[in-house]
């Protein structure tokens, strides 16, 4: 019983903490970036920034932070003609809260009250774009490798025997 509790507590803490993503520039500015997220369930994702620059313009991921015009018309009134800012990595704006309530009832302008979490921002942007252009991984295993803890979480012990398809 206690053993189970420790595992649950550990996994819960790990899931919460793993949202804190450190984008490490492994070799050069525009090369492979290691996204060390959900280290317990999945091993870090190796993101090829250089490859993605060929497919997408900066705004599609960085929105208004690189100095280009935002593609979303909703952002234009405020963020048009801006200069790029130095802190333009994802975790500068996408945090861990479910709903950003900094601009709620009391605020007249509620533009930033539905910002995806960091984990949400990755998966929404990556998968939607990959689906849209018809290339790139859209399933979990396309980017992630399950760790031992992840296999426990998804209860994959029986998978090998039954030959189930992994997403």
């Amino acid at each position: 019983m206690n053993y189970m509790r420790v595992i649950i507590l550990f996994l819960t803490c790990a899931m919460v903490n793993s949202f804190i993503v450190d984008a490490v520039f492994a070799s050069g500015d525009d090369s492979i970036i290691e996204i060390g997220t959900i280290a317990t369930l999945y091993s870090p994702v190796l993101f090829d920034h250089e490859l993605h620059v060929k497919y997408a313009s900066c705004v599609e991921c960085h929105h208004h932070t690189t100095g280009e015009e935002p593609s979303d018309p909703y952002c234009l009134p405020c963020h048009s003609g801006e200069k790029g800012i130095a802190q333009n990595s994802c975790n500068e704006c996408h945090t861990n809260g479910s709903v950003d309530e900094t601009e709620s009832d009391t605020s007249v302008v509620t533009y930033h009250n539905d910002v995806p979490t960091l984990k949400g921002a990755y998966h929404l942007n990556c998968i939607d774009c990959h689906e849209g252009i018809g290339t790139g991984p859209i399933r979990c295993s396309g980017c992630h490798v399950l760790t031992g803890a992840g296999e426990k979480f998804y209860k994959t012990e029986k998978r090998d025997q039954e030959g189930g398809e992994s997403k």
């Binding site: 649950i8 859209i138 979480f153 998804y154 029986k158 998978r159 039954e162 189930g164 997403k167």
Partner: peptide
């Protein structure tokens, strides 16, 4: 937004200490 990854099912199972499913939660078949 849902892509049917069934991670919510796995999380629920763990949180509520429910019995293990017949097939793993990442089995999309």
């Amino acid at each position: 937004r849902c892509v049917g990854c069934r991670t919510c099912e796995a999380a629920c199972n763990l949180e509520n200490q429910l019995p293990a499913p017949e097939r793993p939660f990442n089995d999309m078949s």
